[in-house]
Every structure is written in C-alpha cells, then in structure tokens.
C-alpha cells in the first residue's frame, strides 16, 4: 500500500529520479501492448511482407480510420449479439446450474449429457440454426449463448455440490429443508464460482457470435472480416480482429470488476483487516 500512496501523493521530493516515481506494475500492460505493436511493425519492415499477407500495425490503424463507419457499426452489432447471447447464457446457466446442483441424481443424470453437448463444435450447429431462424442476428445470439452457458452451469453446480457436510448437518439438525440449505448456504457459496465463470463465458460468447456472423449473417465483425477477406482487404480483416480484441478485453474487465464487487469476501487476502 505504501508504494501506491507515495506515487499518487504530489511529489514533494523533486530529487527523486523519475523512474522511481512511476508505478511500473500499473503501466506494464500498456508498455507490453505498445511493445507488441512495435515488434510487429519491425517484423513487417524487416521481412518486407506484403500487406495482403501480414499488414503492419500502422497499416491496420490506417484501415481503422479509413473504414471507421462500417467498423463502428459492425462492432456494435457484434457487441449486441454477444451480450444478448451472454445474458441469456447467464440466466439459463444459473438456472440449469442450480437445477443440476440440487440433487445428486439430477447431477449424475444430466452431467454426461452436458459434456456430450459441450463436445459438439458450435460452428456445426450454425447451419441448423439458420434452417430454423434464417440468417442474421438470431443464429449469432444463439451460438453465443450455446457456447458460453456451459462453464456457467458447471461452476454453479460445483459450488452447490461442494457444501461442507458439517454445515449441512448443523442446519438439517435444526430442521432445515433442502430449500433453506440452498438459499442460506448453497447459492451464496456458489456465487464466487458463478462470477468467476462469467469471465470465461464472455470471451467464449465472442467466439460464438463471430463464428456465426462469419458463416451466416450480413452484419457484424465476423461478416465484415469475411467479406474483406474475399476482397483481399487484409488490413481491414486485421482491423476487425483488433476491434474484437478491444471488445473482449473491455467485457472481461467489466466481468472481473463485477466479480470483485459482488464476492469480495472470496478474495479475502486482498482485503485489509
């Protein structure tokens, strides 16, 4: 803590060198990102790769500026399908997780089915979804949902299934019903698992929506990249990838923040007494 306070306080010791006044840990993500782009740029210059194979980052940024209007529109579309699919996954995942974790028999019966379902590549389901719902946003939303709800289910069910037997005994001896134990212990207990799984689920949701948009949509970053690729506009493809990365990081950070806010008690080492 003391290091941080020193850095944020107005510097009264001008004699101290600049390098010591900078919080390198906080700065590191930015430095490494810039470093990656510099390395990439240098690699392109040294190998002289044509922009149709590997465009330099400067060329990619140029494409972002040039095509900003379609990029922005398609980014919003992808963000929309992803978050809607993810939101359905959160609700359904929580419900199914609670249902599965409720009893050992349900857990035993449904678990193999869930694993089998999860093993199916979701891209293989997109044609079926297209047959059912036509091309567009609906298959993208559903693919995002299908790919991202599994980790939520597994984590919630695990949280419920690992209640300490002593806790259960103490409560059951007092006359607690299954519902009491679930409400008082099971559900609060599985919340850290649940919020932890959101970080995994949101990144998977992007995979789902983009895959679906690539094969079966006229909108979204996936569609934009696939049409840019067919026109050999490789810088625009990379621009799309970059936008996806930015959206992914932003949503992940949001989930991590929510996790911290909701279940701070599970991260006790980071809480001061």
């Amino acid at each position: 803590m003391s290091v941080v306070t020193k850095n944020t306080a107005p510097s009264t010791t001008p004699g101290k060198p600049l390098a010591q006044r900078i919080n390198w840990v906080k700065l590191a993500p930015w430095l490494y990102t810039v470093g990656l782009f510099v390395l990439w740029e240098l690699l392109v210059i040294v190998l002289q790769t044509p922009p149709t194979i590997l465009p330099a980052p400067s060329r990619v940024f140029q494409a972002i500026a040039q095509y900003w209007s379609p990029i922005w529109k398609n980014s919003l579309q992808t963000l929309y399908t992803t978050t809607v699919g993810f939101a359905i996954a959160v609700v359904a995942g929580l419900a199914i997780g609670l249902f599965i974790g409720w009893s050992k028999a349900i857990y035993a019966g449904l678990y193999p089915l869930m694993i089998g379902f999860n093993a199916i590549p979701k891209v293989a389901l997109v044609p079926i979804l297209v047959i059912w719902f036509g091309i567009g946003a609906v298959p993208a939303i559903l693919t995002a949902f299908l790919i991202s709800f599994f980790p939520i289910v597994v984590n919630v069910a695990t949280g419920l299934a690992t209640i300490e037997p002593e806790t259960e005994d103490v409560l059951r001896a007092l006359g607690a019903k299954k519902l009491d134990i679930m409400l008082k212990v099971g559900i609060p207990r599985s919340m850290p698992y649940f919020f932890g799984s959101l970080k995994i689920a949101i990144t998977l949701a992007f995979v789902g929506s983009v895959v679906s948009e690539t094969v079966a949509s006229n909108y979204g970053l996936g569609n934009m990249m696939s049409s840019a690729q067919s026109q050999f506009n490789v810088p625009l493809v990379f621009a799309g990838l970059l936008m996806l990365a930015v959206e992914g990081i932003a949503m992940y950070a949001l989930m991590a923040w929510i996790e911290m806010r909701m279940t701070g008690w599970a991260h006790r080492s980071s809480m001061s007494h």
């Binding site: 103490v170 212990v185 207990r189």
Partner: peptide
C-alpha cells in the same frame, strides 16, 4: 426426524465467510 432442540458444533467451525 431431525430434532430441532439441539445445537451442534464440530471440529471444523464452518462459519459462512460471506
């Protein structure tokens, strides 16, 4: 059936951390 006139304590305190 479970008798609710008892209190129980085990070696593991099983306090709920939240």
């Amino acid at each position: 059936k479970p008798v609710s006139i008892v209190g129980m304590a085990f070696q593991n305190p099983t306090m709920l951390p939240w």
